[in-house]
Amino acid sequence: MKKRKVGILLFDYVDVLDFTGPAEVLSLTANNKMEQAVTLYKKNLLPTRPFQVFTISELGTAIKTHSGIKVTPDFSIDNSPELDILIVPGGPLRAVQSIVKKQKIKDWIVKHRNIEYICSVCTGAYILGGTGLLDEKKATTHHLALNNLQEVYPKIRVISDRRVVHDGNLLTSGGVSSGINMAIYLVEQILGKTASERIATTIEFLSR
């Protein structure tokens, strides 16, 4: 089976759980029950795992998260590998608004418009909205930002009653922990319900 390359965009003041939640789900997903057990035992992830997850920032240099934790990304947007899945996490509105002003980052996201999935977590929907990719699409975001997202991007069909919204190859999710729901949903779409239930049980996450 093809190993999907998953890139997670990082930026200053990004919310930690927005990107570590999906990263943990996808990194620990296994092809079968035996591999899942081995994954929990061994220090290093199996080379047969279905998802390879890495982080990307504009320059590839260290970023400071909203909670103050510093993270050094694996790649910059100029040298990142080809992607099958792109995940855009969120953060405080001032942070995502700053990213929306960066044309280079928006152009880089748009370049991936035809990959298997482009995803946002929480207010990462603002960044996708700034690219135009969500125009005329259904999408969601953090519950406190739903009305503002609709005001800023009136062409988006904002959905308020779902944690994960799937429209074409675009997945958007609600606030913070909803990124875990989104990642489990991705696993189900790609590997099937058994695999998604297995990883949800492994991380002891009660999916809603």
Rank of each mutant, 00 (worst) to 15 (best):
I99L: 01
I99T: 01
K102M: 14
K104A: 14
I105L: 09
I105C: 04
I105G: 01
D107G: 02
W108P: 04
K111D: 06
K111W: 02
K111N: 07
K111E: 08
H112Q: 11
R113M: 00
N114G: 00
I115P: 00
I115D: 04
Y117A: 05
I118M: 13
C122Q: 06
T123A: 08
T123W: 08
A125D: 11
Y126Q: 05
L128D: 05
G129P: 08
T131A: 04
T131F: 04
T131Q: 07
G132L: 05
G132P: 00
L133M: 10
L133P: 00
E136P: 03
E136R: 12
K138G: 02
A139N: 01
T140M: 09
T140W: 08
T140S: 14
T140K: 10
T140N: 09
T140C: 09
T141K: 07
A145R: 02
L146Q: 06
N147W: 03
N147D: 14
N147K: 14
N148L: 15
N148R: 14
N148S: 11
L149P: 05
E151R: 15
E151G: 01
V152E: 08
V152L: 13
K155N: 12
K155C: 01
I156T: 13
R157S: 13
R157Q: 15
R157N: 15
R157C: 08
V165E: 02
L171S: 00
L171I: 05
T172Q: 04
S173N: 01
G174Y: 03
G175E: 10
S178V: 04
G179T: 05
G179R: 07
N181D: 15
N181W: 12
N181H: 12
N181T: 13
M182A: 13
M182Y: 09
M182Q: 14
A183H: 07
A183I: 14
I184L: 10
Y185L: 09
L186W: 06
Q189C: 10
I190N: 00
I190H: 01
L191M: 15
L191G: 10
K193S: 12
T194G: 07
T194R: 11
S196R: 08
E197K: 10
R198N: 07
A200L: 13
T201Y: 12
I203P: 04
E204R: 13
E204M: 05
F205Y: 15
S207K: 15
S207Q: 13
R208K: 12
